[in-house]
Design a protein around this nucleic acid. Structure first.
Lengths: 149, 149
DNA sequence: ATGTAAATGCATGTTACTTGCAGGTGTAAT
DNA sequence: ATTACACCTGCAAGTAACATGCATTTACAT
């Protein structure tokens, strides 16, 4: 499995456009958040983003609020991986399907892995989709990673 | 609390044995917890169990601690279904495989469904198991239930 | 350049646990 | 049955991760 590593440089102008297209104002805090998440190799917690950006003069509450707003605007995705902490990840604007990739979380060490390119639908056996009492949109896998098993 | 006379009654003696076999003392609070979870149709939160048992004279902290201890003793299973709240469920002592059934949670109404009889392994497409970087032991499905979709 | 609605920063509140400790209780050994 | 003592309980206080209220500041359409 290959961990996300974005090669492209952050494109500030593009971030500002995306924020505005969502009906939000393009503020320094929001651009800084997108920039930071762009460089992350996986989802980041509220606290991780806030701690880093506090050093650059942003308030923790602003970061918290902006993350929620950006997630509501579907610029970020917000997820809960079993440890009672929200994590945020930049959505790829281009490819819609790339957004709903799976996450695997190691219940020992807490490491998160993104299984890019695999949609929730493709991951499930057909029998499960028939058995489910609704529409499955998201799948979270838990287990032990190679280092921990 | 009403107990049906005919159908499967909770077996207090069996609960006491199971608690003691785990190296724990069989206390009223712990037996009451197992009894309550036995009658539940799905996983219950800390708060749900605590609120009910507080009326019967048990302290909330005791319930919290007992739930954690019983889960550590593998008499209960402890799960997080995406809303930042722990839920507990009685494990069936007999059938090992019955323990790892799937859960489906509706992201709209929060309803939890147990997909009994379907193991995590059977739910996944073969391709996913090859792609994963470790051993998958648990799968959580999220989506919209029939009422909400 | 300017008005105004949106965003921010600081303080405070909330939820869901988590921990510390004095006193009570279940168990094994007498 | 009694006793000893580690384990468990109840109460209070603490903590982590947000959530909210409000006065001030800022983005951006005009």
């Amino acid at each position: 499995m290959k961990v996300t590593k974005r090669a492209k440089q952050p494109d500030f102008a593009a971030y500002r456009d995306r924020i505005r297209q969502a009906g939000l104002r393009s503020t320094q805090a929001r651009v800084a958040i997108l920039e930071r998440l762009h460089q992350a190799s996986g989802p980041m917690t509220h606290a991780q983003v806030a701690e880093e950006l506090e050093n650059r003069g942003f308030d923790k509450t602003t970061i918290y609020r902006s993350l929620v707003e950006l997630a509501e605007a579907r610029i970020l995705s917000r997820m809960e991986l079993g440890d009672h902490v929200w994590r945020y990840e930049l959505r790829d604007s281009g490819d819609k399907r790339q957004d709903d990739h799976l996450h695997f979380v190691c219940v020992d060490c807490g490491r998160i892995e993104c299984l890019e390119g695999t949609s929730a639908q493709a991951a499930l056996a057909p029998s499960i989709k028939r058995a489910a009492t609704g529409t499955i949109s998201d799948v979270l896998l838990k287990g032990h990673c190679r280092q921990c098993e």
